[in-house]
């Protein structure tokens, strides 16, 4: 499930409300999940610089009562699953941007969340690394049956990864104006999904609707 919308429509705030970093001004957030069942992947890979990759991944497990030696073992398993076998002893400073993103991902996935929130998680990566990580995330998420709520500016990313895309209107008082079903079957490869016949028409529709939202905002500005 993806959430797209113009800047300032409150996409990030919504995610922050879901995970409890921010209290909604009105209303409540219902997920039916315990806080430990929700994981969040941020845009920045905010790893603790003074802990190794392994220690960073083990952190969430330790917070949730796993014995440190067991947590470290599990951390190694997750690092391996994300292609970082042998990098466990490295400090974040000595990892590349893509590797740090993988560590951050391992850290969240190690908690085996039922719901994964992602706030433009791949924006800072270069194209190839980004495509690869997106592929890996898609595979892992499908295999582990994790629900994902993705906030993104990238419509291609939104369509190729989701079953359902929601468009938020221009803020303030943003609301969901459209929702779109993505008819591309699963399991799917997010790179190949772009070649599916349903992709281009959906992309165009989303693009037009989003443009209209952004234009509406500019008209509002010019009348002021």
């Amino acid at each position: 499930m993806s959430l797209v919308g113009p800047s300032g429509s409150g996409k990030s705030s919504l995610l922050r409300a879901v995970i409890g970093l921010q209290k909604p001004l009105a209303g409540t957030v219902e997920t039916g999940l315990a806080p430990s069942e929700i994981g969040m992947l941020f845009q920045d890979d905010a790893l603790l610089p003074w802990k190794t990759a392994r220690e960073n991944v083990a952190l969430g497990l330790i917070f949730n009562g796993v014995e440190p030696p067991r947590a470290q073992e599990q951390a190694d398993v997750w690092l391996q699953r994300l292609g970082l076998a042998g990098f466990g002893h490295r400090f974040p400073r000595h990892l590349s941007g893509g590797q740090r993103k993988r560590v951050a991902l391992a850290q969240v996935l190690a908690m085996t969340p039922k719901l994964l929130l992602m706030d433009e998680p791949f924006a800072s990566l270069d194209a190839i690394v980004r495509a690869r990580i997106i592929q890996e995330v898609a595979t892992l998420v499908e295999r582990e049956r994790i629900s994902v709520l993705l906030v993104t500016h990238d419509l291609e990313e939104a369509i190729s990864l989701s079953d359902c895309v929601y468009l938020l209107s221009q803020g303030p008082r943003a609301h969901i104006t459209h929702d779109y079903r993505v008819p591309i079957p699963r399991p799917r490869d997010p790179v190949r999904a772009r070649m599916h016949p349903a992709f281009a028409p959906l992309y165009e529709k989303l693009w037009n609707d989003l443009s209209r939202e952004v234009d509406r905002d500019q008209r509002a500005e010019s009348t002021v």
């Binding site: 970093l21 806080p35 941020f42 905010a46 969430g60 949730n64 850290q107 908690m111």
Partner: peptide, 10 residues
């Protein structure tokens, strides 16, 4: 962000 990360990890 480090603080938020720790909080979201529980």
């Amino acid at each position: 962000k480090l603080v938020e990360r720790i909080v979201t990890l529980g």
